[in-house]
């Protein structure tokens, strides 16, 4: 049976359109909803002396807003951090404090 026997591999040709063409295409990129740091009402502040480099904040941060450095210490990307507080909640040594923003997302 020839059912699942695919003999020739036929790849299509991607050819640029020749008339005015605007398809709904995007590419993954930061800031698809802008600088989401402005959404924040509280900001996480990392107390570096307490940090044990367990990376749990980096693992759980939904936003990719915890920047992991080469020595596994961490920093917050305040441009994008939405201030959800998950990093502070999962930190096993209380090394992240949530402090109120003076105004939404001031950096």
């Amino acid at each position: 049976m020839g059912e699942n026997k695919i003999t020739s591999s036929q790849t299509c040709v991607i050819e640029p359109p020749k008339t005015f063409f605007w398809a709904p295409l995007s590419k993954p990129a930061p800031a698809a909803s802008g600088k989401t740091g402005t959404w924040r009402t509280e900001r996480p502040v990392i107390i570096q002396e307490k940090c044990v480099k367990c990376l749990l904040c980096w693992l759980y941060c939904p936003e990719d807003a915890i920047i992991r450095k080469e020595d596994n210490s961490v920093e917050v990307d305040y441009e994008y951090c939405k201030g959800c507080g998950i990093c502070a909640a999962v930190c096993p040594v209380d090394a992240i404090k949530m402090v109120p923003e003076e105004w939404g997302g001031k950096q």
């Binding site: 993954p28 990129a29 930061p30 800031a31 698809a32 909803s33 802008g34 600088k35 989401t36 959404w39 941060c61 939904p62 936003e63 990719d64 807003a65 990307d77 441009e79 994008y80 939405k82 201030g83 959800c84 507080g85 998950i86």
Partner: peptide, 10 residues
Amino acid sequence: GMPGNASCPG
């Protein structure tokens, strides 16, 4: 992930 997306905090 991709920072700056439209998801709600948390």
